[in-house]
């Protein structure tokens, strides 16, 4: 996971180096004698860090600087892991409590992921911040698969994405720009609460027409396992056509002058808000868990790297000391003899 996030960085570095080498070749003025300075710029090190030719401690200095940077990176990843762990504990309780909100709905209205409808919204829930493993790419992958599945039924299907979170947007706008209907960001600035999620659900209901909503999020299982989950919610019109649901409702007495249609409309809107609340919490919990394990991995990688660097550094230092000693001793012996 850590190497995955490091890849773009090293790519950028490689490009930078490539650019430097190219500009050196095109200017062509420095020549061989200026080699020291040019070498310094191509490796990304200042020329002050490279001692003149023959100096003993040049490579030692570089290795030492590198060790220092690795050490500080390790400190940062360790701190991030601690922060994620403490946030995880709070939000996990909240997420587990919120599961009771959607379960009755699934018992009453059912979950029909295979429903074929004309107008569908795919609500993709992702995180705003990165460095949390593969949770965002997995929800994006599932959303794309859902979209393609819908396309198999016929060409005249109207499917739109509603995206929550910066990272999901960044991935989906690359190839499905025209299919994005709405985007929500900065949702985790204040802690996630029901009011916020229901306001978001309200905005989605108001500004979109749909027959079904499919929500894709990571369900939190444990710190190391998250299940990409699809929750399907049908529109009141579709629910009304469903004999099972309307049959169940007949058992209840409805207060006031509300018709069955109105009750179903209210229910389906409330179901959407509750599922949204649960999905946001589950996804945030998964994000924290994923970040925790990602940061643990990178802390371990940094300490491995530090061990290797320390070994190299000590070995070369020892070697140079030994060489110097031999030179001094053999010089002295030559003078005596």
């Amino acid at each position: 996971m850590a190497s995955g996030s490091a890849r773009p960085g090293s790519m950028r570095l490689a490009k930078l180096l490539y650019g430097n080498v190219n500009s050196y070749l095109s200017s062509g003025a420095a020549g061989i004698n200026g080699g020291g300075a040019v070498w310094g710029s191509t490796t990304g090190l200042s020329s002050a860090e490279l001692a003149p030719f023959g100096a003993r401690s040049a490579s030692g200095q570089i290795v030492r600087n590198r060790m220092k940077s690795v050490k500080s990176i390790q400190k940062i990843t360790k701190a991030m892991k601690m922060v994620a762990a403490s946030k995880l504990r709070n939000i996990q309780v909240k997420a587990e409590n919120s599961r009771g909100l959607w379960q009755p709905f699934t018992a009453l209205l059912g979950d029909a992921p295979a429903t074929k409808v004309d107008k569908k919204l795919i609500v993709t829930i992702s995180s705003d911040k990165g460095l949390c493993g593969g949770i965002n790419s997995s929800v994006v992958k599932y959303s794309r698969a859902l979209f393609r599945l819908n396309g198999l039924d016929g060409p005249d299907k109207d499917v739109k994405y509603v995206i929550v979170g910066e990272k999901g947007k960044a991935q989906l706008q690359r190839d499905s720009k025209k299919l994005i209907g709405m985007y929500f960001g900065e949702t985790q600035k204040s802690s996630i609460c029901f009011t916020q999620c229901s306001m978001m659900a309200d905005e989605i209901i108001k500004s979109n027409e749909y027959d079904a909503i499919q929500m894709v999020y990571n369900k939190f299982n444990s710190v190391v396992s998250f299940q990409p989950t699809v929750a399907t919610m049908l529109s009141p019109q579709l629910l009304l056509g469903d004999q099972e649901v309307t049959g169940d409702l007949d058992a209840y007495e409805i207060e006031g002058s509300d018709t069955k249609e109105e009750v179903l409309q209210n229910l389906s809107e409330f179901q959407f808000a509750c599922t949204m609340y649960n999905a946001m919490l589950e996804n945030a919990t998964s994000e924290m868990g994923a970040r925790m394990s990602a940061m643990e991995n990178s802390t371990r990688n940094a300490s491995d790297m530090l061990d290797r660097l320390t070994l190299t550094y000590n070995r070369s230092r020892q070697a140079s000391i030994t060489t110097e000693l031999i030179e001094i001793i053999s010089g002295a012996a030559a003078l005596e003899g």
């Binding site: 706008q173 720009k177 025209k178 994005i180 209907g181 709405m182 985007y183 929500f184 960001g185 900065e186 949702t187 600035k189 204040s190 802690s191 609460c193 029901f194 009011t195 916020q196 306001m199 978001m200 905005e203 500004s207």
Partner: peptide, 26 residues
């Protein structure tokens, strides 16, 4: 009181172009 605190940003997208974002905050 904390249950009323809300902050999020939303923007509608039309044909691949994000419209002016609206911030809903308490």
């Amino acid at each position: 009181a904390t249950r009323e605190r809300v902050h999020f940003k939303l923007s509608q997208w039309l044909d691949g172009v994000p419209q002016q974002p609206i911030v809903r905050t308490s």
